[in-house]
């Protein structure tokens, strides 16, 4: 464990907590893409199956349980408890165009052809594009609440910090995973447009407006 990876995981956890608090306190999921949250739940489910038969550390196990519980909790809030506030008209990104290529790519490019490895690889590929429905929804609605932009900033920062973690581990000649690194770079690049707007607008108190 290094400071970059710890900050990355905490940023990820912060993002999930910000989202849960936003939905719970405002009793509304307006502006939030249920499709992205659905993809995140798939990502965690496919990746954390090893939860039940490999123990790496207490931290690792606890965080996996927290991420699984909070992602399904978010789905519950969005699709059941506060379903009436879910903006399905603007949450229209075709997620099959994300899931199917991720499955195909995981079957073609992976470290070893086993079920657990294919599922892990699929979750890595899917995670790199899972935010697209949310970014698409923000561009369609033309703006986002500031709390949603804080959520996106924390979520985007998590994988950016992981890139620093991989650089750090490379200098320590620790073992690395090329698939996770390439997908992590793609994932972070998708946020660049948003990062620019967040740093130049939201932090100056303006509303976040993505060019439609």
């Amino acid at each position: 464990m290094n400071i970059f990876r710890l900050l990355g995981d905490l940023s990820h956890l912060l993002a999930i907590i910000i989202l849960l608090l936003k939905i719970w306190n405002s009793r509304s999921c307006a502006g939030i893409s249920g499709r992205s949250q659905f993809l995140f739940a798939i990502v965690f489910t496919a990746r954390y199956l090893d939860l039940f038969f490999t123990f790496i550390s207490l931290y690792n196990t606890v965080m996996k349980i927290v991420f699984l519980a909070t992602s399904y909790g978010t789905l519950y809030l969005m699709y059941i408890k506060f379903k009436a506030t879910y903006d399905s008209n603007h949450d229209t990104f075709r997620i099959e165009f994300l899931i199917l290529p991720a499955i195909a790519l995981a079957l073609l490019i992976n470290e070893e052809f086993t079920v657990i490895e294919i599922l892990w690889t699929f979750s890595i590929y899917l995670e790199s594009v899972a935010i697209l429905p949310q970014l698409f929804m923000v561009s369609k609605t033309g703006e986002a609440e500031s709390i949603t932009s804080h959520y996106l900033f924390a979520l985007g920062s998590y994988r950016a910090l992981y890139i620093l973690n991989w650089i750090y581990r490379w200098f320590l000649t620790e073992k690395l995973n090329a698939i996770a690194i390439v997908a992590g770079i793609v994932q972070t690049i998708l946020y660049c447009d948003f990062f620019y707007l967040y740093l130049t607008k939201v932090l100056k108190g303006k509303k976040l407006q993505l060019p439609a």
Partner: peptide
């Protein structure tokens, strides 16, 4: 090698 796989990350 450096790209041997270790799944200790979340």
């Amino acid at each position: 090698g450096v790209f041997d796989v270790v799944k200790d990350e979340l």
